[in-house]
Every structure is written in structure tokens, then in C-alpha cells.
Amino acid sequence: MSVKVEVGAGGIPHNQILIYGLVGSLVLIYLTYLNTITGTEYFSFFGGLAAVVALLWGTDTIKHLCSYGLGTGVPSAGMIALGSGVVAALFGATTGPFAPIVTIIIAAIIGAVAGLMANAVVRMDIPVMVVSLIELAIVGAMTILGLSAMACGTFEFLGMITGEIAILGFIVQSYEFSLIGGSIIAVIFMLGAIAIQHSFNACLGPGEQQDRTLMLAAECGFLSMIPIAIISFAFIGMYAALISLVVSIVGWLYTYKKYIELSQRDAYAWLDAQPILEPKGGA
């Protein structure tokens, strides 16, 4: 039985973030379906925004889970989240327009199994383990689905396994140049896995503040959107990809600036080229 250590008490309650995260990412991911309805690709960037919202929620979940003394377990929590998520997202993607909802259900099941295994078999005995791993699996699945939708313009499986390549001026459809065939899904996996754990891993400590950690989570999300926007030039139209790129750069610049301001607020001192300030009374 682990002992719970309170980190950064106060701030927005976790359940509120959970509801905003779940509903927000679901709605935003469905907004990419406008691509299919209108027959364009300009709405792809909503997938990236869904991933940002999911990452905000996932960061808060990791903070809750890791308050049970899992210091070095923070990066592993990100890995299990995205690992469960990628299975759920790929299964869900095969169900057409219902993909996001099916993904959430499958992810919840995978997360529950992983949580029960961790508590009953590995005997970690952490009270919030099952709930947290369910949440993390859903977050991971939504991140994968969102960033995939951003890269190739759709969350449907067929769109993920067909790519187009121009050979001698002719457009040829091929599996090799698709999101899954080219293993871009592996890049999305790593981007999500590092982004989900980085904010809490970077901000942990006695002075951790929820607003700063969540701002960093948003920053990591927008930062992950930038390379996906660049990769999406290979899959979707030039202007659609350009819109994604502008949205991600603007979002990243804003959150990065805000995060530096919040760090400046919380830091003991903000010095440039100064010597070590030895504490009063000596070490």
C-alpha cells in the first residue's frame, strides 16, 4: 500500500478537468469530420486541438496517479497511456463515423484490464490505479486519433492506409506512402508519449503549481502539432496543411510565452550570469 503525497493542492478539481477533457476532445475530433461532409481538408487542425485538450486532461491524471510516490514512474505512465491508446485508436478507426466513440470504449476496457493487472497481479495496490489507467488509455487513444486525423485529414482507417504519390505526373494510390504504411503512427506515438508525461515530469517538486503544469501541457501539445503539421504536407492539400501549421505555431508561441511568464512568477529568483547564491547559514 503506497502512501499518498499531496502535490500542489488547490486549483481546478480533477473531475472538472476530466469532463472538459473528455467532452472537449470528443467534440473537437468530430469537427474533423467536417472534412468528409464538405469534401475539403481545411478542418484537419481540429484533430491536433483535440490532442491538446486530451493532453491537458492526461497531465492532470498523471499528477493524481503519481502523487502515490511514483517519481521515476512518470515517463512510464506516458508510455502505457499511448501504448494502450494506439491499440484502441486503430481498432476504433475501422468503425467509420463512430470511430471516436468506439475508441473511447475500447480504450476504457484496455485501461481497466491494465489497471486490474497492475493492482491485483503486480500488487502495486494504488487506490486510483484502475481509474487512472482507464483515463490515461482514453487520453492516449484520443491523442493518437487526433494527431492522425490532423496528419491525414480523416480518422477513418481507409484514409490512414491509403496515401497518394505522384509518379511521373500521375497520382498513384499506394499503401507505402500512407500514415500507417509509412509508420508515421510511430512518430505520433512517441510525440504523444513524451508530451503526456513531460509536463508533470518537468514541473514536479514542492513548488509545483497546477496552472503552470497545465500551461506546459498545452505547450507540449501545440509543440507536437508543429511537426505533424509539417508531415501533413505529404498527405493533405498544401493550403489545408498551411492552416494546420499556422494554428499550431500561433498556439505554441502563446502557450510558450505564458509558460515562461508563469515560471518567472514561481521561481525563487530570475538571474542572468550571476554567481551561486549560497543559502544563509551555509549548506
Binding site: 514542492p206 509545483e208 503552470r212 509558460y259 515560471s263 521561481a267 525563487y268 530570475w270 542572468d272
Partner: peptide, 19 residues
């Protein structure tokens, strides 16, 4: 972001951020 976050969370112990 990792350096800023870790160092800002150590404010209680008097560790400044060296830009």
C-alpha cells in the same frame, strides 16, 4: 521547459533560475 519547470518548482529551497 524542463529546466524552467524543475527549477521553478524548487523555489522553496532558494534555487534561482539562471537564464
Amino acid at each position: 521547459t524542463a529546466y524552467l519547470g524543475r527549477t521553478a518548482s524548487l523555489a522553496k529551497f532558494g534555487q534561482p533560475v539562471y537564464i
